[in-house]
């Protein structure tokens, strides 16, 4: 199987001297193409930090991150941003939609940022898929939490990224909405063979993925496949 993501001895330290906190300690693992993995752990264990490093919105203190054999840890912030918009889709716990843009505009944002034209057919397909038809011209404030997260998923998949990173995508939702979101993620994973790395503290949700990595105090406690 093709290796999509490889992490080698990844460490991240925040603060200095007495305030120094080591969020990640020499983490090493790899993820294959089309794999859906969950990273679980208690609050403050370092799982979100790991996701931020993979997405390139933060830089590691040491270690390497390879995405499709490309070492992104040597990229500067600008290169990381461009890499992210072309190859990675990100979903956040608090949706992080741009409040002044409509549903449609939020979904097509990564493509427009790359100065590419959006295919109407594709956009319509995603809107229908995410059950957002008729709400294209709504502002995020006019949507429920579940709907907002669906818009965030739409924004993450519009670009056909190789990897989708989801940081507690169901953390702010009720069971019904959580299940729906998980269904969409799984659908995307299967249909487009996308690699999904999901951070969650909910073990039940994690069980829906192919593989679970548990992080504790910045180190991998276990890395196991789901039966």
């Amino acid at each position: 199987m093709m290796e999509m993501l490889k992490i080698e001895n990844l460490s991240k330290t925040f603060g200095e001297n007495r305030n120094k906190v080591q969020a990640l300690k020499n983490i090493t693992f790899s993820v294959n193409k089309g794999e859906f993995i969950s990273i679980i752990g208690a609050s403050g264990s370092g799982k979100s930090t790991l996701l931020h490093l993979i997405s390139g919105i933060d830089k590691p203190t040491s270690g390497k991150i390879y995405i499709q054999d490309e070492d992104i840890s040597k990229y500067n912030m600008n290169q990381l941003t461009i890499f992210r918009r072309r190859h990675i889709g990100v979903i956040y716990q608090f949706y992080n939609l741009v409040p002044i843009l409509t549903v449609r505009e939020n979904i097509e944002l990564p493509i427009r940022l790359d100065n590419r034209r959006i295919e109407d057919k594709k956009l319509k397909y995603i809107i229908d898929l995410l059950n957002l038809s008729g709400k294209e011209r709504y502002l995020p404030t006019q949507l429920s939490g579940g709907e907002q997260q669906r818009v965030a998923i739409g924004r993450a998949i519009i670009n056909n990224p190789s990897i989708i990173l989801a940081d507690e995508p169901t953390g702010n939702l009720d069971t019904k909405n959580s299940d729906e979101i998980m269904e969409y993620l799984k659908y995307s994973n299967k249909k487009y063979n996308q690699t999904i790395i999901m951070v969650t503290h909910n073990e039940k949700i994690a069980l829906k993925s192919d593989r679970i990595i548990k992080i504790q105090d910045g180190s991998i406690l276990f890395d196991k496949k789901n039966s």
Binding site: I82, R84, V90, N96, L97, V98, I100, P110
Partner: peptide, 13 residues
Amino acid sequence: YFYILISIGMTRK
């Protein structure tokens, strides 16, 4: 939301 824009791929430039 400027940071959100950056997080989804808007460069600082």
